[in-house]
Design a protein around this nucleic acid. Structure first.
Lengths: 339, 339
DNA sequence: CTGAAAGCGCTAACAT
DNA sequence: ATGTTAGCGCTTTCAG
């Protein structure tokens, strides 16, 4: 899409200078309050700007606004909305421009967006990985020392900056809580195993079991894809096949917890009377549904990410740098003591 | 934030031209596949680009990518997430850049974002109004014929483009459904009355009552602010004060429906046994919670909005232009027949 | 087919 | 205090 297709001829700074009988430099000075300009000249320029309805623009190629690309796996996941609200809140403080890229959990989209963002001349990227394979573009960016911060994924990559939360600890807490409530058969609904969050949460789950001498049973693990729908379907299957006995479900995110909840209700179980459920993320709905869950500080992850990115862009810090925030168990009413 | 603060010196097109022993114009031609370039020259240029790790950029001031500002009242509202997903899906087809602005339901933020967007030289704006007063900047934009499309608000403004859905019809259907189920005392939780959606939905509610000879009782109207929390609080108050008798609640959005639901449960009512509830929007959670609701085609509103905006930007159409999509009642399990 | 040069809208260095 | 001019990184005439 080229400018020439666009129907919009507007008055520019030179026009203002001309009709105000001064130079373009002076107009620029007035607008930027840079060096002092004689009051009556400034006055005149200001008036001319109004008169011509000139739209001030900071589009010089020399001095640019910070442009940040925000790559989101799935805009419809409420957890990411919270995270975005953290990013946008801080962006205002720096007058930074946030370019939103929704990948819809699709690797092709991700690749497309990386390419386009780079072509747009962005200054940095906030990246939430979701795919199995790290996009080759990403390796390239890291090599080039391009400012990029990873979210929610520790990864084996060297020399990257990331902010995440302590998923291991959060998961461990959740499982321990269930065990203390008397549960020993705990179904775990994992996200895709290649995501560090999923993996780490599963590890936390295992540690919780191990610490209470409960044998880990792989049959009790379901692999979902973060979506509510898939979790629902998998749990239905699990129940129909009578795969394994369980008294509690720990889902790797709230969306999947709700999918499981729905499936269980449909199969005649009542929550928490027959089955206890814990989720992860603490999306807004979880409070409504009284879902006990592990809260991730999504907003803070967002604010930390952009702050870190800006430091990177300004060259104030160099990778690697990691920020790990704390997750915390929020006890509500979806779990029952069965001792 | 100025470019000079930014730590990033990169190879540019001139560098490529130099080491490929050709001119910058030729490099540009190769990149844009514009005029034909001799195969071996093209080859050489391509190799040089790789060798130097040159990042292709479309940042010329002459030819620009379409930049669209997306002003969202509240990114945390799942309904807007759906809408955004519609916008971003289409944006890809045009390689358009979407600049996300989250207003957090705050007029100052809205003003800030309008100002900044304009300064960034965007080509058009997708605007979801939420404030009582239309920002003065907006009048100015309309006067200037700046490409802007309004969402979810019909408004009294002349010569604007908007896309919305038939809220009147949707609301009317919902109320009629409740009435047919035997409900005559229907509490209505409105959004802010100055929003056309709120207003129109209230009108639909009134029409539904009128058609069945049920007298409209203002005492049964609660005014919320779109948030779940406020609806919750207002319903609690309503019940405690025994303001009016009701057997059903019709909320102007799902978030508020859930707020009401929460309040009712807390006060000992069971849904739908004692009270029936209908919402509006059909956010993803409503299906989980089995909330009967009026579905707004958020995704389609988003796609239509950006399509319309691009037409506006390209000068293919002129305001006014309105697109009105259809809302439809989704019957689930939050309502009960009480006849 | 290709290079030189003008120019997009603005800022900043340099004169005066 | 202000005007002139070079340039940001690229595209696009215009010559040749």
């Amino acid at each position: 899409m080229k400018r020439k297709d666009i129907n919009h001829k507007s008055v520019n700074m030179q026009d203002v200078a001309d009709t105000a009988s001064t130079s373009i430099a002076t107009v620029s000075r007035v607008i930027n309050n840079s060096t002092s300009v004689k009051p009556h000249v400034r006055q005149k320029v200001l008036e001319t700007i109004k008169a011509l309805n000139y739209q001030i623009k900071f589009t010089s190629l020399r001095t640019k606004v910070i442009k940040i690309g925000l790559l989101i796996p799935d805009i419809k996941n409420p957890y990411f909305s919270i995270l975005i609200s953290g990013v946008t809140a801080v962006s205002k403080l720096y007058d930074a421009e946030i370019i939103l890229c929704n990948c819809d959990n699709n690797v092709e989209n991700e690749r497309y967006h990386f390419k386009k963002l780079l072509e747009l001349g962005i200054d940095g990227i906030i990246y939430i990985p979701f795919a199995k394979e790290i996009n080759s573009i990403v390796y390239d960016l890291i090599d080039r020392k391009f400012p990029i911060v990873f979210l929610d994924r520790k990864s084996d990559l060297k020399n990257i900056c990331f902010v995440t939360s302590n998923n291991f600890e959060g998961s461990y807490q959740a499982v321990t809580y269930l065990i203390n409530l008397g549960h020993r058969d705990i179904m775990f609904i994992s996200g895709p195993s290649y995501l560090s969050t999923s993996f780490t949460r599963l590890e936390g789950y295992k540690k919780g079991l191990a610490e209470h001498k409960i044998k880990f049973n792989p049959a009790k693990i379901i692999y979902g894809d973060t979506y509510q729908k898939t979790a629902y379907e998998e749990v239905i299957k699990f129940i129909e096949k009578k795969t394994a006995h369980f008294t509690a479900v720990f889902a790797s995110n709230d969306l999947m917890a709700f999918g499981a909840w729905q499936a269980l209700e449909e199969k005649g179980y009542r929550i928490p009377d027959n089955i206890s459920i814990i989720g992860y993320d603490d999306i807004p709905f979880s409070s409504f549904a009284s879902l006990t869950t592990v809260a991730q500080p999504g907003y803070e992850i967002g604010t930390n990410a952009i702050l870190l990115l800006i430091d990177l862009i300004k060259g104030r810090i160099k990778p690697p740098k990691k920020i790990i925030l704390r997750d915390s168990l929020i006890i509500r009413k979806s779990c029952k003591n069965i001792t």
